[in-house]
Write a protein that binds this DNA or RNA. Structure first.
Lengths: 258, 258
DNA sequence: GTATGTTTCAAACAGGTGTTTGAATTTATG
DNA sequence: CATAAATTCAAACACCTGTTTGAAACATAC
């Protein structure tokens, strides 16, 4: 099956090896990990899909665990570079940003992923989802160590955009929002299929985002305690605001130490 | 290690086998599945924890797949029985219920799980989360076939509680809400630990729910398109209401066919 | 062209997986 | 008690896992 013809291809006018075994592995792994998860994807599936030898994974990446991190690194470096730029532009402003702006700051790059790769958004969110649920979290730790600062800045910006809310509230609402986004995008196309067949409307990453943003914005802005209809009346029990510790320390421990 | 003393115990005055091998397996499996997921939990781990023979799993349950479904069935039968009762009481009312009522309808039983079993809520949500992300979804299909009608009724009730919103909107917002809830509760205690250390406030299932309900309620109620501050002004692009098909058919296909 | 370093390859490795088997044991029945 | 059914048990089954090995093929440089 594996001929020797594809061993070489013309790249930029000069002969090179066939598109890099290392990248072939990374591409195949990325797809399979998003589809099936890390534990349910074997190295033999990856090497078969990439049409390379089994041993080349350990030769180029050392171990399966390192391969997983490499897949993540490629996605995140692309994604968080854009988010970082967007963050700075809002951080530099004097007046606090609107929540919708803060949300778009991170959702727009998420949508952009779909233009770079086929089903890029869904694949990325599935990887994120699995990173959070699979194993006991060595991957979540990897995420926090390498990219926790970005999330830290995002949390601070969100806090400034929500005056009148405690950091405790913002903390939880941030994770509610992450859950809604990750769960929805990562949801194995089942939701999309149902929606398409029932509502006769093509479902894209952008159309879901159009639904998601007002939902999250309203949730984030909501008054803390609403027994009836959202009025901030009466006594609220669990509204213990404690902004005594410095914001420096607070956000640092909040998101840097998993 | 395994003595023959615990082979018999007194139950209801008469001698019986030691608390049922079948139940011992189910208990051990339930804990391990919630902790580590289905694929990462081996039958040998389960039988070791339950202190029973390896072969007894296949003897009592036939296969690992059936064991997983059995674990789910025990949780869901308890949970959905209560939810079913709550649903009916609201369905019988003339005037549409408040969203907070609809949310409490399903969140209160969720909290109650914590009183029945230790960390019952978290365990249940983790099982749900894994059911949605793991494998290609044979477990999600099982859920929908056996318990889809309850979710169908919940969706309809939510729709009546949200006048002025299209079924398309309600559909997506329902799944946003599910994502927020499942992701948060299932989040491997990491969130809870962070919150406890940073905000010096004990985090319980109930205190999270107190945060979650107003967040979800506000998101569900939000006007469809809010570029600035949640006012339902200006033109909205993706608000294609199509209530042409009968509600009967719509909700049926929505949640019964996975 | 020979030598050197890099990459590929088939094969084997040690260990874990769910499942099956058949005998031994326990429990229930007549 | 004896017989029959239900359950437990240790061992083995066939298969899949990530990783290692050592020789073969390749690339590049002298």
């Amino acid at each position: 099956m594996h001929t020797s013809i594809n061993k070489s291809s013309i790249i930029k006018g000069s002969f090179k090896k066939r598109a890099g075994t290392k990248e072939l592995i990374l591409n195949a792994a990325e797809e399979l990990f998003a589809e099936r998860g890390f534990v349910e994807t074997s190295l033999r599936m990856i090497t078969a899909k990439a049409d390379v030898n089994l041993a080349s994974v350990n030769y180029h990446y050392g171990s399966k665990k390192s391969l997983i991190q490499a897949v993540f690194n490629r996605y995140l470096s692309d994604f968080y570079r854009i988010v970082g730029d967007n963050l700075q532009s809002l951080e530099n402003r004097k007046e606090p940003p609107a929540i919708e702006e803060v949300l778009k700051l991170i959702i727009d790059p998420l949508i952009e992923l779909d233009n770079i790769k086929v089903d890029g958004t869904v694949a990325f969110m599935r990887l994120l989802s699995r990173a959070y649920s699979e194993t006991q979290g060595h991957l979540r730790r990897f995420l926090m160590v390498n990219y926790g600062d970005i999330m830290d800045r995002f949390y601070r910006l969100l806090y400034t955009a929500l005056p009148g809310h405690s950091q405790y509230e913002v903390f939880w609402r941030l994770h509610f929002s992450m859950g809604a986004a990750i769960f929805t995008f990562a949801g194995n196309q089942a939701l999309t299929e149902i929606s398409q067949s029932d509502f006769e409307q093509s479902v894209t990453v952008r159309s879901i985002s159009t639904q998601l943003i007002p939902f999250l914005a309203a949730g984030l802005k909501a008054s803390g305690f609403s027994p009836d209809s959202g009025n901030k009346s009466s006594g609220n029990q669990n509204n213990v605001n404690q902004n005594n510790s410095t914001q420096e320390n607070l956000t640092a421990t909040t998101l840097k130490n998993p």
